[in-house]
Design a protein around this nucleic acid. Sequence first.
DNA 1: GCATATTGCTTGCATATGCAAGTAATATGC
DNA 2: GCATATTACTTGCATATGCAAGCAATATGC
Lengths: 148, 148
Amino acid sequence: MSDIQTINALRILQSADVLKTRLSGEFSAVHGLSVNEFFLLQHLEKAPLNRLSRVELAKRMHVSASTVTRMAAPMEKLGLLARQVDKRDARLAFVVLTDAGRTRLNEASGTFAKQAGYVFQDRWEKSELKVLSELLYRLVVGNPANLT
Amino acid sequence: MSDIQTINALRILQSADVLKTRLSGEFSAVHGLSVNEFFLLQHLEKAPLNRLSRVELAKRMHVSASTVTRMAAPMEKLGLLARQVDKRDARLAFVVLTDAGRTRLNEASGTFAKQAGYVFQDRWEKSELKVLSELLYRLVVGNPANLT
DNA sequence: GCATATTGCTTGCATATGCAAGTAATATGC
DNA sequence: GCATATTACTTGCATATGCAAGCAATATGC
């Protein structure tokens, strides 16, 4: 447990755990969303036409296609998502963000920002947060999963 | 999707996903360990007497006590861990790192360092890695889960 | 010192997720 | 243009994990 790269990897993994733990509580309680469902909505909002095929969504979320199938079903029933079959290619079943989904996402984004604020406030200067974001950017840049 | 704190939180979560994906493949293939089992071994190695109660281990790993119970059982059978009941308090069942466990951990640590190297090399100067580690340190300092 | 509360661990049940197989649609090679 | 391969999605099964209940041991209040 020594070289700087190992330490950074460990700290990133642990920081993510801390963040996820903080988020998941309030997310399910206040918004009825899991953290992963929140990310699903975000990927759709960022996508052209607010829609993505299930396979593409799976890649961006770092989950399997079956997980997307199973996550989308209940969210469709709630009206947060819709299914849209492609006319040219009947295999494609897009997941589309509905207005209700966008509304829910906006509410949850507030919670996300609030929790991120708790975590970072008072321990980092604004300039340091900027440096941190730039260093982390190199880890996620080019990754289709990147939401920032 | 705007303020710097939100962006940093998102990037940390995504970076952790990238790292975990990279690690889990080689870990299970080469060492027969999941990433979480690797962390379990690390927590024990860092602990006094190389042992921790199940409850304490659960806290440090950010998992439930039942998960520790279930993770430890097969690792005990493999001889990587041992169970040690406290004489004073018969409720306490320590999880202890065995020599075989330490050996396995050392092998896996090499893999971890190698993968961390792949991720960070060529994209960060040594000095930047130092800055990154210091900024991340504030997220994990004081956390009993911190391994660095 | 006894009744009650708390603590540490385990187990049953529910949920989440991956993998592999299955199905249907489209693409490719000839 | 037909046979085969590939792609997109779904489903069955296995594993991982949390929560709540259960159990046993210890601590606490009186």
